[in-house]
Amino acid sequence: MKINEICKTVDAEILQSKGRLHIDIHTAFAADLMSDTLFIIMRDEDPLLLITGVTNLSVVRTASILDIPAVMIVRGKNVPPETIQLAEQNEIVLLRSKHIMFVVCGLLYKAGIQGVSWEM
């Protein structure tokens, strides 16, 4: 799914477009705990979308460490300018949806986005 299709599906805007804006995304992971994200995503995944309610710098740093190309902020939260700036420096596309995390996941799952493969 292209990023602009993802945006249409979950009523999202692009906050920061520098980066891999034209990739195809097949998988997603939703979490607010970055340590949880760091725990789960370690494989050479397809380009992945991280869905989160966290807006501070740690979300960009986590994405950068894990080579995650795009992050979706949920609930229409205010994103601090320094987060947007760090995302731009590290070429991580930042999106923002008005919907809550549950609805964003529901709509994207329905549209065919899959969860990451993982084991406990």
Partner: peptide, 10 residues
């Protein structure tokens, strides 16, 4: 934990 840390997996 409010900032997204401390999930107990570190």
């Amino acid at each position: 934990r409010q900032l997204g840390f401390g999930g107990g997996v570190g």
